[in-house]
């Protein structure tokens, strides 16, 4: 269990968490990016404009 950095609520994490993965906070809905897994470190996931092609 780790705290949501937006609302402070506990965030449930699955076992095979990967760096770069985005998890949603079930309480406030914030998108959190996994910066590290051992120990788990979360930060607000950046908004990234999606483009239709490169």
């Amino acid at each position: 269990m780790t705290e949501c950095i937006e609302c402070g609520a506990d965030v449930t994490l699955h076992d095979d968490l990967e760096v770069g993965e985005i998890v949603d906070c079930a309480t406030c809905g914030a998108e959190l990016e996994v910066l590290g897994t051992d120990p788990v470190e979360l930060d607000t996931a950046p908004e990234l404009e999606e483009d239709w092609g490169e």
């Binding site: 770069g20 985005i22 996931a45 950046p46 990234l48 483009d51 490169e54």
Partner: peptide, 23 residues
């Protein structure tokens, strides 16, 4: 430049950094 992209891999949302692309 857009160096980070949101992707879906194995059904998981992820952020991939180090992309060399731009608009």
């Amino acid at each position: 430049r857009k160096s980070a992209v949101r992707v879906v891999e194995d059904g998981k949302k992820k952020i991939r950094r180090g992309d060399h692309s731009g608009t």
